[in-house]
């Protein structure tokens, strides 16, 4: 389990020790390289599971014995009960679908439009120089602060949530794709032109594939941003969605329902995150970066 080269280093230290003439001036402390023993996988997995079970068990026990106030914190058994109700007689699927659609539409729209905008800067340096400060300006405004405004303009339906999610993802994608454009090797362009390529050919065969890793690298960030946008949009004004469910439950002090909605939302977030990560690795393999 130990690192391969550690005994080697230790040996050297030991070999040197007797060879050194024994002088009383500066005796350097000689000690072995500290070797850290990594736990075996089964121990790690057991501990991981143990932490989860422990927290749930303690929480349940503390709530039933009134060590913590079950009204404020709720308890696992009540959450489980509410979860079943939420999925059988509640709005679970409507809410999930609403949040999911807002997120995905915003993610796709923002990423696609932003990437195209970023790539478009390759076509003209002057155009890029003129537009860039505005993009950076837009980047510096916390876009979520505009959420109430966007809701006012787009209404309380799905459109406004998509708009908030798009606003959050668009700028990130633009700046990242533009970073790719700026990293382009001018000699690569030279090669293409020496082969008689047109500007459009250079764009299609060099600029786009070169910038693809940049565009892909931002997907995972964007799916998170899009979800945040959708949730905050729902907080401000909405009739559906997991964000609204959390807010509503919080306002009525139905803590178990808050937990359920947070749990479902987190599961949704993780599934989307994993899906995008998988997509990213797939694309990365495809682009050989």
């Amino acid at each position: 389990m130990a690192v391969q080269d550690s005994p080697h280093v230790a040996d050297v230290a030991l070999d040197l020790a007797p060879a050194k003439p024994v002088t009383n001036t500066t005796a350097k402390p000689v000690h072995r390289l500290p070797v850290q023993i990594d736990w075996p996988t089964w121990a790690i997995v057991t501990t991981q599971a143990g932490i989860l079970v422990g927290i749930i068990g303690l929480w349940e026990a503390a709530a039933t014995t009134s060590v913590i106030d079950a009204f404020f914190w709720s308890q696992p058994s009540a959450i489980w009960h509410t979860l079943k109700i939420f999925f059988t007689t509640g709005d679970a699927w409507t809410d999930i679908s609403f949040t999911f659609r807002s997120t995905i539409f915003g993610f796709l729209l923002g990423t696609a439009a932003g990437s195209l905008l970023g790539l478009s800067f390759w076509w003209s340096r002057n155009y890029a120089a003129i537009v860039q400060p505005y993009i950076i300006c837009l980047e510096s405004i916390p876009k979520l602060a505009l959420a109430p405004l966007i809701i006012l303009v787009f209404g309380i339906g799905l459109g406004s949530k998509v708009a908030v999610a798009t606003a959050l993802t668009l700028v990130v994608s633009t700046l990242t794709a533009y970073a790719g454009v700026k990293a382009l090797d001018p000699d690569g362009e030279k090669l293409f032109y020496s082969l008689g390529a047109t500007r459009w050919q250079v764009f299609r065969k060099l600029v786009v594939p070169f910038c693809l890793p940049w565009i892909i690298s931002v997907l995972r960030v964007n799916i998170g941003l899009a979800l945040t946008g959708a949730i905050v949009g729902e907080f401000i004004a909405s009739q559906h969605g997991l964000g609204r469910a959390i807010l509503y439950a919080g306002q009525t002090y139905d803590i178990a329902l808050v937990w359920v909605a947070v749990l479902v939302l987190s599961t949704l977030a993780i599934i989307m995150y994993a899906a995008v990560s998988w997509l990213e690795s797939l694309l990365r393999k495809g682009t050989r970066q």
């Binding site: 914190w73 937990w259 939302l265």
Partner: peptide, 17 residues
Amino acid sequence: VANAMPKTAFVPIFYIW
């Protein structure tokens, strides 16, 4: 998991606590 979760969803529950 904690990093992938939308932290803003916790605003109402933070308020209560």
